[in-house]
Simulated scan of single mutants.
Amino acid sequence: MINKFVIHPLFWAVFSISMITGHFRDFILVFCLIFIHEIGHTGAAYFFGWRIKKIVFLPFGGVAEVDEHGNKPFREEFIVVMAGPCQHIWMTGAAYFLMTFNIWDPAFYEQFLTYNFMILFFNLLPIWPLDGGKLLFLACARRYPFKRAHLVSLVISLHFLIVFAMVCFIFYPFQLNVFIIILFLGAAHYREWRHHPYIYLRFLLERYHAQKRDCEKQLFIEVQETAFLQDVLKTFRKGVSHRIILKQGMKPRHPIINEYDLLHLFFKEQKAWSTVAECFHSK
C-alpha cells in the first residue's frame, strides 16, 4: 500500500524557477511524463505484490520506494524497473495519433517528443538511482554475491556520473537545472554508499525471516571450516537458496548446512566472528 506521495524540495525549487522564467507549460508537461513513468513502476510492483512505501517526485524524474530488500526474483525486478521506461513507448504512439488527427499541433508534438525521449534516455543512464543504475546493479548481482555486487555497481555508477557531469559542464555550463540534477545524483551516491552495511544486513535479515523462497534454485558453496561466519555470508547471492559444504583441508564434510542455520547463528546467537567449525561443534 502506498502511504503517501512525496514532493521532493528540489521539485519546488525547479517549479519556482519555471514560474519566474516563463517555462511553466514545459514544467507541467515534464511532470505529467514523470508521473506516468512512475505509475508504470508502481503498477508493475503492485502486480507482483511488492510492498510500496511511497513515490517521491523529483524535477527530472521520480523514485518509487519499495519495502523490498534485494530478494525478489531477477525477472520481477527487471520488469518493475523497465515498466517505467516502457511507458514512453506507448506515449510516443499516442502523441503521434493526437497530432495526426489535429488534436495536437505539430509544434507541441515536437516539444512532447523532445521531453519524452529526454526523460527516457536520461533514466536509462547507468547511474544510481536512475532506472539504468538499477539495471546495472541487477547485472552485477548476476555475476557477484549481493554485497560485492552492490559496491561494484556503485563504483561503476560513480564513474558514469563523473563522465556525465563533465559532458554537461562542457556543453551546458550555465544551466541551473543540470547543476541541480548532478548535485542530487552525487548526494544519492553518497547516501547509498553510507547505507551499504544497512542494505546488506536487510538483505540477510529478509532471507532469515522469509518463510518461502521466490526462487527454488540452489547454490552449493564450499567453505573451509576455519572461515568466519560473517565471511561466508558475504558470498550469499540474490535469487538462489544456499547450501554450504564444509571442507576440512581438501575433503568435504557432511552434512550439508542450510543457509537458515548460518543466518540464525549470525542474528540470534551473534556469532559473526566465530568460525564455521566453532559454530557447529559447539551446538
Rank of each mutant, 00 (worst) to 15 (best):
227 A>Q: 14
198 Y>H: 09
233 L>N: 00
179 F>S: 14
182 I>D: 06
253 R>F: 14
184 F>K: 08
170 I>K: 11
192 E>A: 10
228 F>Q: 03
215 C>V: 08
262 L>N: 03
175 Q>R: 14
271 K>Q: 08
229 L>V: 02
214 D>I: 02
257 I>D: 01
249 G>K: 05
230 Q>H: 13
258 N>M: 13
222 E>R: 14
214 D>R: 11
230 Q>N: 14
229 L>F: 03
240 V>I: 05
231 D>T: 05
250 M>P: 15
190 Y>G: 00
234 K>H: 03
275 T>F: 00
265 L>R: 12
237 R>A: 02
229 L>Y: 00
211 Q>S: 15
219 L>F: 02
228 F>G: 02
195 H>P: 01
230 Q>V: 10
236 F>W: 10
223 V>H: 06
176 L>P: 11
201 L>Y: 01
218 Q>K: 15
220 F>R: 15
221 I>Y: 08
215 C>M: 13
235 T>N: 01
242 H>A: 07
258 N>H: 13
254 H>Q: 15
212 K>T: 13
249 G>Y: 10
247 K>H: 09
244 I>R: 11
172 Y>C: 15
170 I>R: 07
170 I>V: 06
226 T>P: 06
224 Q>E: 07
233 L>T: 07
248 Q>T: 06
273 W>M: 12
221 I>Q: 05
208 Y>V: 02
249 G>R: 05
170 I>Y: 03
257 I>R: 05
227 A>T: 12
267 F>W: 04
205 L>R: 06
238 K>F: 11
197 P>Q: 06
242 H>L: 05
202 R>C: 01
207 R>K: 07
271 K>H: 08
267 F>L: 06
187 A>Y: 04
213 R>G: 03
210 A>L: 04
169 F>N: 07
176 L>Q: 04
